[in-house]
């Protein structure tokens, strides 16, 4: 292909990437280095609010926001360097935890960023093999079914993937929260004192189960498509050579599907690292939070209407760095596979 043709084909996507990914990324990076604050003045004012029978008026010092002539608040933006990152990472407290006399890992469990990172990483790495494994299992099972029942089976297997994530998470929560029907069942069969939302580990367990249930169909449909392209001649010659069912899977099918496995793993890791719906849907903030939820929490206006833009930017930059680090091994593999053989 001539260079000019190549450029013309890729230009639209390159422009969109530039406008919608690259520019916002730079903007977030810049915002994480600056901090914008409101300018205030101390004034003595009288404030009146309703009392039960008569109005209550109090005069007190009040830090009032200074407004410009057009009614907009006066703000001041200063370069703060890596302060936002330091504040998100809570570097000093982390150092104190591991200094002599510190409490080590127990103290780290109380630092938001680090406990979010802990959960996000375990969540990603536990769901990854389960999603790939379960997806493969369903794909092989469906592929071995009679041709006439495959269609309906594919449809049914795909259903969990179609459910909107937040709705799915809420449904699971309602099944298990309080004396929800599944908790009631667990109480009747295992232990009458079970409460699924009373401690962190049971909530995490539900999150893992939910995510695997939700995403396995995606892995399944990709692998199922791949299975249709396995070379039947190779399989037949393997049978003639006396290869068992497992050996055929191990030496013919899996190597053939390897690029797809890498693809599913890549997509799943990117998705799982940004875990968010589960935390909101399960109302799990007290016990379990994720990195994406942390960013969201910084961005939510607090009771003064303020959003912590700098810290939210720092936190999302850190999330992005995390994803890139996680993906490097897989990307290196893809790169090696696609390099023209010399």
């Amino acid at each position: 292909m001539r260079l000019k043709t190549l450029l013309m084909f890729t230009a639209p996507s390159a422009v969109l990437m530039l406008v919608f990914i690259f520019v916002p990324l730079i903007s977030v990076a810049v915002q994480s280095l600056f901090s914008t604050t409101l300018v205030r003045e101390q004034v003595k004012v009288e404030t009146c609010t309703p009392g039960f029978l008569a109005q209550v008026c109090t005069t007190a010092e009040r830090s009032q926001v200074v407004l410009r002539a057009d009614g907009k608040p006066v703000t001041r933006t200063v370069f703060t360097g890596l302060d936002s990152y330091r504040s998100v990472l809570e570097v000093e407290k982390l150092a104190a935890a591991f200094a002599s006399g510190g409490q080590g890992w127990t103290a780290v469990a109380g630092l938001d960023f680090w406990r979010a990172l802990r959960f996000t990483l375990t969540f990603t790495f536990i769901t990854l093999p389960l999603v790939v494994g379960l997806g493969m299992l369903i794909a092989l099972a469906v592929n071995n079914m009679l041709r006439s029942v495959r269609g309906p089976l594919v449809f049914i297997s795909l259903l969990p993937f179609i459910v909107t994530p937040v709705i799915g998470a809420l449904s699971i929560r309602w099944l298990f929260v309080g004396d929800g029907i599944l908790t009631a069942l667990l109480r009747a069969t295992i232990d009458p004192s079970i409460s699924m939302f009373a401690q962190g580990w049971t909530i995490e367990l539900l999150m893992l189960v939910y995510r695997v249930w939700h995403v396995a169909p995606f892995a399944f449909i990709v692998f199922y498509a791949g299975l249709q392209t396995v070379d039947q001649d190779t399989l037949e010659s393997a049978v003639i050579d006396g290869a068992s069912r497992f050996e055929r899977l191990r030496f013919v099918v899996i190597p053939h599907l390897m690029p797809l496995i890498v693809f599913v793993a890549l997509i799943h890791m990117m998705d799982a690292y940004r875990v968010f719906e589960e935390v909101v849907g399960f109302a799990a903030e007290a016990h379990v939070i994720s990195l994406q939820w942390l960013t969201f929490n910084f961005l939510t206006p607090d009771f003064t209407g303020n959003r912590s833009i700098s810290r939210a930017s720092a936190s999302s930059m850190l999330t992005m760095v995390g994803i890139v680090l996680l993906l490097i091994p897989l990307l290196v593999r893809v790169w090696r596979d696609h390099k023209p053989r010399s």
């Binding site: 409101l38 609010t49 926001v65 407004l67 009614g71 907009k72 608040p73 206006p301 009771f303 003064t304 209407g305 303020n306």
Partner: peptide, 13 residues
């Protein structure tokens, strides 16, 4: 309410 009026007062809106 008492608390939600503050952001509006601060922003002068």
């Amino acid at each position: 309410a008492n608390n939600t009026v503050v952001p509006l007062l601060n922003a002068g809106t």
